[in-house]
């Protein structure tokens, strides 16, 4: 499969998971047990993960798009 195709699939999956992580991070309820361990128990990990996946997904998606337009231009 070409980069244009798998890049777009990967980008879509990453953007979807990124958005899910962002929503889950916002809805996350601090649990007493996690907090008592000194663990980051406030959804901040999910937020960071969400932003990273969203950003990576957009980068890969754009690269796939650029790759496709370059190929089209070279074909003629």
């Amino acid at each position: 499969m070409s980069f244009q195709k798998w890049g777009k699939v990967a980008a879509t999956v990453m953007v979807v998971f990124g958005l899910i992580s962002l929503i889950a991070g916002t809805l996350f309820e601090t649990t007493s047990l996690a907090a008592s361990l000194g663990a980051p128990a406030d959804g901040s990990i999910l937020h960071s993960q969400g932003f990273m996946m969203l950003f990576a997904g957009m980068v890969i998606g754009n690269l796939a798009e650029i790759n496709q337009s370059l190929s089209n231009r070279m074909r003629g």
């Binding site: 601090t30 007493s32 907090a35 008592s36 663990a39 406030d42």
Partner: peptide, 12 residues
């Protein structure tokens, strides 16, 4: 935050 308080020495 609670986790920062654990770092400061609070056990819960």
């Amino acid at each position: 935050s609670p986790q920062e308080r654990v770092m400061k020495g609070m056990g819960f």
